[in-house]
Design a protein around this nucleic acid. Structure first.
Lengths: 233, 233
DNA sequence: CGTAAGGTTGAATTTGCTCAATCTCGGTGG
DNA sequence: CCACCGAGATTGAGCAAATTCAACCTTACG
């Protein structure tokens, strides 16, 4: 993923040299937990890249059931598709206090006429999230609850390591169990019990908002996790 | 979606004027039902656009459970992501006899340096399938079995109409119930019973490989189907 | 210290799954 | 023309997974 050093105050991301997308950032914007970056159905006025914090995309059914369709971590473009499409098919809300970089639409309106680096980065981002979605389809369709959660934790470990927000053996996971539920299509209660199972097998610990992976190989084996889908050219 | 008239024998697609992607087709290739276009893990040697027939992408778990992660209909790029990424994260197989257009890698290797029309079409295709995936995540996570199947049928009606392969009230649906199962993460048996429920409510009929939608508004209401996600700029 | 949000537990119920069998129908060979 | 065959569809009974509802516990925080 393209991570660079933002000029703003919240610059946690200092892994790669300045990246084309970050160079396009003209301003920062901060949201508190549970605030919406964009409502479902809205037309984006500006594009955002997440600089720090956790964010999610979600969609709602008439009966009120909600599905979190994506978790966004620092470095991710939050609303790229919405911008390119002209309207947001999902809502986007902050799971923690978040800082976003704003990118004026003009700079992306026709990404394919831009400098190739920027365009490549956008395409890259799209591919990245497409790969994550595909893996999530597999989890939702075929993995057991246990495997599904295991896979989620492995994926986040990997993604957060990439952006330098995780340690070797875990990371801060600022989600509630009901958010995990919305993410995985399970019930909060079922999430709770499945987590207990995971703990019972000494695979993870999850205390005070920090997830610790106690036996990473075992967890990855259980999840059938293969990080390849997160690695790109 | 970009559909045009292919010069080959199998040209069913004659809706829009010749499209940049179709212009890049150098050769056709035909597969019979159940033959693989590409194996999971393989490195694509050439890109493919589906000209006629039904194809799917799928992924397998160690226990042999398979998830169909996408249905591909005429006009769809089958392996765009695999090409851009350099390896296939899913297998792709023909659900019926299929004709594909082959596009040499050189023409796509760096799509962002190509004529903008081609590049735009590729990006477009990526967005299209991303939108479909997002909807499918919602179905898998939050819709009931009944809603899920209803949604699937609505989606296909819409997509096939777009490429001129559906009539007003239905279309040929050359899938087996177990393929529907792999697509929706259900059991074949559960698919069967859910289909009976759908028939019982006089929403659909499915005979001799043709799916008829008897009450489209009611089916769309049940599924909470909103075709907006399939419409693009 | 009280409150609220999040986490945990139990029991009853529903949904979907497994296994195992039977049915249907199009195609095949005799 | 007809009996056979096999893939796909259908059925039933029992079981497992996940949900619902309702309560209770824990912890952070004002």
């Amino acid at each position: 993923m393209f991570i660079g050093h933002s000029s703003g105050s919240s610059a946690l991301l200092a892994r790669q040299a300045a990246h084309p997308v970050l160079r396009a950032v003209v301003r920062e914007r901060t949201l508190d937990r549970d605030q919406n970056l964009i409502e479902q159905g809205e037309a984006p006025q500006v594009a955002h890249i997440l600089l720090s914090g956790f964010t999610c995309r979600y969609r709602t059914l008439l009966n009120g059931r909600r599905q979190i369709t994506a978790i966004l971590v620092p470095g991710d473009m939050c609303d790229l598709e919405a911008v390119l499409r002209g309207w947001a098919d999902s809502g986007i809300k902050a799971l923690t206090r978040c800082v976003f970089g704003e990118i004026p639409l003009e700079q992306l309106a026709d990404p394919l006429r831009q400098e190739p680096d920027l365009a490549r980065a956008l395409l890259h981002q799209l591919l990245h999230h497409k790969a994550i979605d595909s893996e999530r389809l597999l989890s939702l369709g075929q993995r057991s609850a246990l495997q599904h959660l295991a896979h989620l934790f492995c994926e986040l470990q990997e993604r957060l390591e990439t952006v330098g927000v995780a340690e070797e053996d875990g990371y801060k996971l600022p989600l509630t169990q009901s958010e995990i539920a919305e993410l995985t299509g399970m019930t909060t209660i079922h999430v709770n019990r499945t987590l207990q199972a995971l703990r019972g097998q000494n695979l993870i610990r999850w205390q005070k908002g920090r997830l610790s992976i106690l036996d990473r190989p075992a967890l990855e084996r259980l999840a059938e996790f293969d990080p390849a889908y997160l690695r790109h050219l």
